[in-house]
């Protein structure tokens, strides 16, 4: 186990170097130019302005020089300045990340709760109407484009029935809690402000559902097939043969074993969540990493792109490492060191 974790952490370093190299090569292989993307039309005609811009951002240096400058700053924890926002990338990430964490946590919570529930019902009531219906729901989950679902839900629940709040993290007239963790729900809870907590929570519902929909579908499918598989094993036959009620067979014998593979899907789901974040945050005006990534990519703001990519890649590896470790703890048959 220890050696496995060590190997993954070494891979993480390799990955971080790889991400920086890929973005760096990309930034020079592409015909398009950050100068064009970031200077106004008038300034573009001014050769001196263009030269000054290039000199300021080090774009006049050879590629390997730029890379070494970047890497030596990176190991000191300096991600450089964003060309677009003119702020340090690290500060930008720290500002936008909590909003994303809060939304992602809500999304994964929704996905896990309903995914497991639907999967279990679907497996127990195999080949009935409920099973067909819930499998339909699960395929809907993995098929529906999150950006479209977001618009439709806003139209129905915000504009139509008025039961859900509009885009944003809190209502326009409410002032955000003082920053402690950056998660509005936690911060409101810490201040003991229940109205604010309710407001922040209600703003999480629609974007959280949109974000978690895909993962919900995946979890439903995995739970169903995994529970079906476990139910066909000998020890379940034994449990039934000794006269246990079906309820207890499922709850005490089958479910625990069936949920082990689901843990892995939750890890994979996080990866999908981060892609969905770009769409959901754009539509729900959620000031998080997804919007930041989109704006950075559109403006070819390469320092910011490297920063975001590193943040996401590191998170992805760490989440999957956690999942792998959990998996090893839950299932004694799994051994990572061979």
């Amino acid at each position: 186990m220890f050696r496995y974790i060590l190997r993954r952490l070494i891979f993480l370093i390799f990955l971080m170097v790889g991400v920086t190299i890929v973005v760096f090569l990309l930034s020079h292989a592409v015909p398009s130019d950050p100068v064009v993307a970031n200077l106004s039309q008038r300034n573009l005609g001014d050769a001196e302005m263009v030269a000054a811009f290039r000199a300021k951002w080090g774009l006049d240096q050879p590629l390997y020089r730029q890379y070494f400058t970047y890497m030596s700053n990176l190991v000191q924890g300096d991600l450089g300045l964003s060309i677009r926002t003119q702020r340090p990338v690290a500060a930008d990430l720290a500002r936008y990340f909590p909003a994303t964490i809060e939304l992602a946590a809500f999304g994964i919570l929704f996905a896990t709760l309903f995914g497991v529930l639907f999967g279990v019902i679907s497996a127990i009531r195999r080949n009935t109407f409920a099973d067909h219906f819930l499998r339909g729901v699960s395929v809907f989950g993995v098929s529906v484009p999150s950006f479209w679902l977001a618009l439709i839900m806003l139209f129905i629940f915000y504009l139509g029935f008025g039961v859900a709040p509009g885009p944003g993290r809190i209502s326009p007239r409410v002032s955000p809690p003082e920053t402690w963790s950056g998660l509005y729900t936690l911060d409101a809870l810490r201040m003991g402000d229940w109205a604010l907590l309710g407001d922040a929570l209600s703003h999480l519902v629609l974007p959280g559902i949109c974000l978690g929909m895909f993962t919900m579908g995946l979890i439903t499918r995995t739970t169903r097939s995994s529970l079906l598989e476990v139910l066909s094993l000998d020890f379940i036959r034994t449990a039934r043969a000794k006269g246990l009620a079906e309820k207890n067979v499922i709850r005490k014998h089958a479910l625990g074993n069936a949920l082990i593979p689901v843990v892995t899907v939750v890890g994979v789901g996080f990866g999908n969540l981060l892609s969905g974040m770009v769409f959901v945050e754009t539509i729900f005006a959620w000031p998080g990493i997804g919007q930041y990534a989109y704006q950075s990519a559109k403006n070819l703001d390469f320092p910011a792109i490297v920063g975001v990519s590193l943040l996401i890649a590191v998170n992805y590896v760490l989440i999957n490492l956690t999942v792998d470790i959990l998996y090893g703890l839950l299932d004694p048959r799994v051994r990572y060191d061979r």
Binding site: V22, S32, S275, A297, I305
Partner: peptide
């Protein structure tokens, strides 16, 4: 295969956005 793994661990949507934004 490490190279392939690198591409996979890279946040796909960002890579796609950068490529299409850069190429037009």
């Amino acid at each position: 295969m490490r190279g392939a793994e690198l591409v996979q661990a890279f946040p796909t949507i960002i890579l796609a956005m950068v490529i299409s934004a850069a190429l037009g």
